[in-house]
Structure formats: C-alpha cells, structure tokens
Design a protein around this nucleic acid. Sequence first.
DNA 1: ACCTGGTCCCGGGCTCGGTTTT
DNA 2: AAAACCGAGCCCGGGACCAGGT
Length: 389
Amino acid sequence: MNLEERISRRLRRTHGRQFVRDYAALSPAAHPEEPVGRGAMLERLLDALEPTFAGELPPSTYLWGPKGSGKTAVVRATVLQLAAVSRNQREGIHTTTRKQRPPTPPFVYVDAREASSEFALLASVLDGLVDRPAPTQGVSTADIRSRIDRQLDDRDGAVVAVDHLGEPRTMTAGAVAEVLTGFDAPVSWLGVGRTPPAESDAAPEITLQLGAYNRHALVDVVTDRTSRGLSRDALTHEQIREIATRADGDAHDALAGVVGGAVIAQRRGNTTIFPDDLDAGIEAVPSPCVALGRVLALPTNWTRVLAVLIDLDAGARDSVTEATRAIAATEGIELSESTVRRMLYELAEDGILERRPSDAGNGRGRPPSRLEPAFPTLVFRELFDESAD
DNA sequence: ACCTGGTCCCGGGCTCGGTTTT
DNA sequence: AAAACCGAGCCCGGGACCAGGT
C-alpha cells in the first residue's frame, strides 16, 4: 500500500474526531499542492527549467538540502503542475487549430523510495508517460525501455524528477542518471537529495541548494498546515511558535510533533491540544529523527515488524535476540526468527532503528544492544493502523 | 577457550503480468 | 476463451564468518 492510499483511508476515517479535521494536511510525509514560504526557491527552480517553456529540455539539475527543508514540497508541486500543463497541451492538439506553441515536454515525478531498482524506476517513468498503469511485473527491463521509447517517439524528450536520492535504500543520483540514458529521445533528470553535490556521484549541470527553514518561515508552514488540518484554536499561535523553535528549522519534525500532540490529546480525552499534550508529542519525536516517509516506504512485512516492535515491553527490546523471539512469536507475523533478526539489523544499519548499549546481558558473550525507534512512533502508529484493516 | 551478538552475502522459490498453447 | 507456461524481480531464509565480551 502506498502513501496516497494510506492517506485517503485516513481521510475517510476522520469522522468523530473533534479537533483533528484532516490528517493528510498535517502528515509530515504528505505535501500540499502549494508550498508555503519557498517562493524564492520556486523561482530558481523555474529558472532552471526555463527551456521547457520554449519546448526544449532543461539541463540536468540537482536540488539538495537538509531533511525537512521543503525539497519535496517544492519539486513535487512544480513537477506535477508542469506535467499537467504538458498533458493538457497534448490533449488539446487534436481539438484546436490555432497556431501551436512548441509543446512543453512531458514531466514525470518519481519517488525513489517507491522505485529502488532499475526496473522499478523505469516502470515508474513509463507509468508517468501513459494513461493506463504500467506493468509492475512479468516484463523485462528491456521491454519497459522499448515501451518508453515508443511513448517518446513523437516527442522531443522528457523530464524525469527523482526524489529522495542517495538514502540507504534508494539509488544514487549517478545511478539514476545512468538508468535514464540510452533512449532514442533525450531524457533530462532533476534529482533531489540531501547529499552535497561534491559527495554525489553525478555531474548535474545546475545545482540548487536549499537551507533549513528560518523560524519565521517554519511558523508559516506549521500555521498553514494546522489551519487546514486542525479545528480553529486547537493550537495557539504561541504554541506554534514554540513548535517552530524546538524543531530547529525542520518542518518534518515540527509536524511530527504536532500530530504526536494531537494523538496524545485524543488519548487523554482532551478537547483541545493542551501544552502538556504538545510537550509529550514533541518529546516523542526522536532526535535525530528519520523521515517518516522512509519508514512508510518499507515493504509491508517490514512495517509490520516495526509495528510489533514498538509495542513490545521495554524489557523485550533490551536485546535484539529477545526482540526477535518476541516478534517472530507474535500472531500475524509469518516470518522465521532468522528473517526477523536480519530485518532488525538491517533497519538498524539504515538508521531507522538505533542500537544502544544495553546492560541486560548475562555477563557472557558480546553485550546485547537495545533497540530504539529513530522515527516518530506516534505518527507511524496512526498511519499503520490505517493500513491494517 | 568459549560464548553471544553483529555483519554480510547469496540462492531458492514465490508471485504475478505477459505470452503461448490448447 | 481458458489454461498452461514463462520469466522477471525480489522476498525470505539461512549460514559463514567476524567482533567483543568473560
């Protein structure tokens, strides 16, 4: 189940909640159609994409910046908008006789978290170029390539934006650039990631850097989201300012704190988010915090394992071996102990779980380590419960 | 020496569109 | 039209080997 589905389920089930009107508007893993507080970067991005307005392909571009700085918000909104423009122009060609402008090339937005292999990336690109869903199995990558070629046959090329590059489970910019070569028509890429260009393995013609939100801009972002996601006065302006300060420029962490505060207020049966609730919500956001989108993009069995793990007693998480036994024995988990163990170690390796020295060892052997989630568990729990039914 | 935890890697086989045969 | 077959990706299980402790 992908993020879109999770969120629309969430939307359907928000009846009866008093002060949470719309979790999608609050989710740190979702993004609005209109980014807030990033006007300057939108302009710079449009500058980089300027050639497309004359029907040409833009130079390869890499946009980078820290987590929660609005990279996805800016690029996703822009690319989806331009994709719609291109589609409308194309559909209009048959019905209008007026002199044609050079057509805007097709734009495709791909989240590398949902497309971590060459095959998956190509399938996503094809999917963005056609109306019908592209096959996800049963065909070779060469086949997908020739289908893309067929789609580009009567066009001058395409622009593919690939988000979340260079994460532990996603492709690097260089790998993406490599995959996107070899078509009959040129394909230009727009990469998004946190890695500085100097450490990246690609050679973009343009790089754009985004810094963390300043305090004022982050207040605007949170105000915008809460005004749509929460009922009026669920949070005071003063509380929003405090969130912005404590999140230190990171919109992801700020929103995770808001959702956490809302969840806790609901658990306590409060009719609004009190300072204590918000405090607890913010406290529940680990520091440093892994982006929720990374966790939700894991294969289903992996998120199931995580959901069981965060509900274990503190004692059962005191060693990986203990946690493995408990998880593998849980009803609904159909995995062997050795698989669960490997998953837990890989999650720790990727930074989604943190291993801390534990004093629970029995003296003999290498000391065990305790597993601590490095993602916002309150928000994860909310979204995971949605996908469980 | 021995024990337990941690890292790394690989191949079998499952799944599921697509393709061919009946 | 239906059934059988094919083949691609990748999930899963397992195990060899390394690390860090008594």
